[in-house]
Design a protein around this nucleic acid. Structure first.
Length: 223
DNA sequence: CTGACGATTCACT
DNA sequence: GTGAATCGTCAGC
């Protein structure tokens, strides 16, 4: 199992075209590697938890949505809106923005562009790569199926992501995005409107969602 | 301080 | 298809 895994450079994130970056994130690998102090007691007591250097869980990104800063009604930063919660969106690209939704779900975003330009990309689905057993423990499931990392709330839970990771560099030890060389061809990528942003009026119509066609982990109804 | 609500998910009809 | 869960965040008083 030797991949040539390279963390994406900061320059990848700090480009200006958030749609382009969103498309390029498809196929990349989101990795978390947490020390034994893990979300569940079960894990701490498990072999993997005691092993020491943290448990690796990772998945290949197969679905994303772009949020185009201050001019995008669906974005938390629309109109230059700036609060304690979304402040990190105004940072230089290459950090995480994680927030709680509906009081239950942690949604993981990638901050892009340069400082003061609050672009972000919501990671909506992953295809599990490593640490399936650990991920299953985190979500309390016994068997691997495509719901494990399907949908933004589910994948955050599986990888152990929560709001305390907001602001983390995406090149840090515990949390990073890597490139193993896989690139989806244009034909394999589909485009659609974003999900759950009806409140955004005309901007709900924008084709800012990108996903890998036919991938069973992509959220939404199969078509 | 208070009330309304969300870039969702899941169980149930 | 419908509705409940559940709590941090934020605008308004």
């Amino acid at each position: 199992m030797k991949f040539n895994m390279k963390k994406l450079p900061v320059s990848f994130y700090q480009r200006k075209n958030v749609l382009q970056i969103a498309k390029e994130l498809l196929g990349k690998i989101l990795v978390t590697k947490y020390p034994p102090a893990s979300p569940s007691l079960k894990l701490q007591r498990s072999k993997a938890g005691r092993a020491g250097n943290g448990v690796v869980t990772s998945g290949r990104i197969v679905e994303v949505e772009a949020y185009n800063g201050v001019i995008d009604k669906a974005s938390h930063a629309f109109g230059g809106r700036r609060t304690a919660r979304n402040e990190i969106m105004y940072a230089n690209g290459g950090v995480a923005y994680v927030y709680l939704c509906y009081g239950i779900h942690h949604l993981f975003n990638v901050v892009t562009n340069s400082s003061e330009t609050p672009h972000a990309i919501l990671i909506r689905a992953l295809e599990p790569v490593k640490g399936m057993d650990t991920m299953l423990q985190r979500v309390g499931k016994k068997k691997l199926d495509n719901t494990l990392t399907k949908g933004p709330g589910n994948l955050s839970k599986a990888l152990g992501l929560c709001t305390k990771h907001s602001g983390f560099s995406l090149r840090s030890k515990e949390l990073f995005i890597a490139d193993d060389g896989l690139v989806y061809s244009k034909k394999e990528i589909a485009t659609s409107q974003r999900i759950g942003v009806d409140y955004a009026g005309n901007d709900a119509l924008l084709l800012y969602r990108f996903y890998v066609k036919g991938n069973p982990y992509v959220s939404g109804k199969p078509k």
